[in-house]
């Protein structure tokens, strides 16, 4: 749809606006998708030009992957959630039979 096309255009522009901190790029992008009201890109630029380019000191610990706690993971995947990724797997002959 036209709406999604606009969102994609936004991220392509946002990525290379160097005065916007990467964390804010992500925030902008994801937030925008949540409220259907699409913010004007000009407004974003304006309000970022005022922002001081102070460099954030990144956390010393680089982590490989940010996983939730085991409890949360267990809860998420113990339900039928696994069905949502079923399509990523090759079906076994038995599953194919069951589908028919």
């Amino acid at each position: 749809t036209k709406n999604t096309a606009k969102k994609v255009w936004d991220i392509n522009k946002l990525i290379y606006l160097n005065n916007i901190d990467p964390a804010d790029v992500i925030k902008r992008w994801r937030q925008e998708e949540e409220d259907s009201e699409s913010e004007d890109i000009e407004d974003i630029e304006e309000d970022f030009f005022q922002k001081k380019d102070d460099h954030k000191v990144q956390a010393e610990t680089e982590r490989k992957h940010d996983l939730e706690t085991l409890d949360k993971l267990q809860e998420k995947w113990s339900t039928d959630h696994i069905k949502s990724i079923r399509s990523r797997f090759m079906k076994t002959p038995r599953q194919r039979l069951e589908d028919e």
Binding site: W77, I82, I85
Partner: peptide, 15 residues
Amino acid sequence: DLAQKVAFGLLELIE
């Protein structure tokens, strides 16, 4: 605990 966490992590990764 470790193996379960990594296994769930793989599911997350696939998703």
